[in-house]
Amino acid sequence: MGALMSTVLVSVATSVVVAALLMTATALVARRQGRVVVVDIAWGLGFVLAALACAVVAVVADAGDALRSGILVALVTVWGLRLAEHVRRRSTGHTDEDPRYEKVLGGTLPDVGLAVAVRKVFAVQGLALAVIALPVSVGMVRDVRWWPVVVAGAVLWVVGLVFEAVGDAQLAAYRARPRDERPQVLDTGLWAWSRHPNYFGDACVWWGLWLAGGLATGWVAGLATLVAPIAMTYFLSEATGARLLEKTMMQRPGYPAYAARTARFFPRPPRSSRP
């Protein structure tokens, strides 16, 4: 039992170290570019690196279930690389700071300085990355107790990835249209059911990974890692995601009416338009 706990702690500590090193490197890139939004690209890559590092720990320690570890690495890698590439394409050609981060920082990076950005963005996201990666870090080095739960987690992951990828594609297609030829807001497809279907999908992905990596290991591991999907859902819905973005979006013509008929986060059929 003691050796098992030691291996779990080593795996968790490995993801912490990966997060710290990555956020340090990202902060240096941000200082050179003069904007912290580059952390969004590092976010997805960080989970991929953490999963791979924890998989190495499992192999070296001869711990965990090889099949489940492979599944976790595959799920995290597909999600993380897709997200990083999507954010990279979206930010190509832009040099301005993301309004969300200006709100968090109280200005731009050159205005507030790197120390403030580290305290308010990079340290927070590094800690969040390590916490949210807990189901993967623990699952890599523990045996599977309930394989049906792993399958259920993989199914939920697929649902989440579809919401996230399709939502992102629909938004990209909307933005690619000339301004004078597109409606004021995107309110079709998944965006008719949720104002942030991509964020909702992201949350589903991590509830799926919690099922596959945390709960499938047993009740103790499931409860110990439950903070991960809860934290991810909170960040996406209430902290740096939907709620913060809405403060800017509500200033745009047509968006308040769209918000009145469309769910903010959890999808549901749109309400009928009101006069």
Rank of each mutant, 00 (worst) to 15 (best):
A3Y: 00
V12P: 00
T14I: 11
V18Q: 02
M23P: 00
T24G: 05
A30D: 03
Q33S: 14
R35Q: 12
V36S: 13
A42Y: 03
L49R: 01
A53V: 06
A55I: 00
D62F: 12
L67N: 14
R68A: 07
V73M: 15
V78K: 15
V78F: 15
V87S: 05
R88T: 09
R88I: 05
R90Y: 10
S91L: 15
T95S: 13
E97D: 06
R100L: 14
G106F: 13
L109M: 12
V116P: 02
V118E: 14
F122M: 10
V124S: 10
Q125D: 06
L127F: 06
R145I: 09
V151G: 15
V151F: 15
F163E: 03
E164A: 13
L171Q: 11
A172K: 12
A173I: 09
W193V: 10
W193A: 12
V205W: 07
G208E: 05
A212I: 09
G214I: 12
T217C: 11
A221K: 00
G222F: 05
L223S: 12
A224P: 01
T233F: 12
F235G: 00
E238W: 05
T240A: 13
G241K: 01
G241S: 06
E246Q: 11
K247R: 12
T248M: 10
R252D: 08
A260C: 12
A263Q: 11
R264G: 02
P270I: 06
